[in-house]
Design a protein around this nucleic acid. Structure first.
Lengths: 153, 153
DNA sequence: TATTGTTATACTCTATAACTATA
DNA sequence: TATAGTTATAGAGTATAACAATA
């Protein structure tokens, strides 16, 4: 007996195409991460910046912008929001540079952030055993490096 | 001997975190795909829409919007551009619905598009053998379904 | 000269509300 | 009452150019 198809449900010509499934899965997990971070009033980018400041106390925002592939220009509103919410603070260091540090509240939020991110990783990658997860994480890192050698880099 | 670290190069506290590597790899492959499609004057979303029309001749744009998770509203400029470039055409069908079809040029572009997408898949996922790629594609699809059961769905 | 932080600006994508024509 | 397509609009992300202060 042939399966009936909802007339609304289209044939997906890209079903099973690995790059397509990869990109759509990533988009879905980003939406889920935004929802998970929303109670903290943070977006994923701001969360990553917070964790970079935590791991690199005293760094400046230009260094973070290079690490994340965000322009210096577009860092301004991100860092401004984090400062405005009292999560990080700027200290004059160089005359043209601000050294960034987490505040006490920033450290607390950063801890909660890390837990949420870890729970999301468990939610979406929990089906893989640890060895597979390490293999995939390395493969994803290599993909990023491979893309970095593209004409755009 | 301890490795010297570029003072500009920050410690990445999320290196090896699978969800983070996953999202950044996806962002990098999307940029690469945009660059690869640029000579055709198409963006990745428009390319997917073209392939949906190819696989579902006569469908309407609301059905595509549901399949892709794009609002009907935001389909308007995408479909408008594809029509404007002579790649798809609208035929009155329902009175309130337009049936979409590829033009001859649309079929040609669609074929080149598919080749480019396949080359990108090979570029980024070529290191995996076929069985692993099938396993991953299914895992990515499951991740999308899992995310779909989130509060946002 | 090069770098940091910034403003201004433009373009795209995304999200919501509302309108029309039709079913 | 629900659906298809559309317009208007607001918000966020992203991109380039330019400037002041500093190294």
């Amino acid at each position: 007996m042939a399966a009936r198809r909802d007339p609304d449900e289209l044939v997906d010509p890209l079903e099973g195409a690995i790059g397509y499934e990869f990109r759509r899965a990533a988009a879905a997990t980003i939406l889920a991460l935004e929802a998970a971070f929303a109670p903290l009033g943070l977006r994923p980018v701001e969360a990553v910046i917070l964790r970079f400041v935590d791991a690199n106390p005293g760094c400046n925002q230009a260094a973070i912008s290079r690490a994340l592939g965000v322009t210096r220009t577009n860092m301004v509103p991100f860092v401004g929001r984090l400062v405005g919410e009292g999560l990080i603070e700027r200290q004059a260091s160089d005359g043209r540079t601000h050294a960034l540090f987490l505040t006490g509240q920033g450290r607390e939020v950063c801890g909660r952030l890390a837990q949420i991110a870890q729970a999301q990783d468990e939610r979406f990658f929990g089906a893989f055993d640890e060895a597979t997860r390490r293999m995939l994480a390395r493969a994803f890192r290599r993909m990023r490096e491979e893309a970095g050698t593209s004409p755009r880099a």
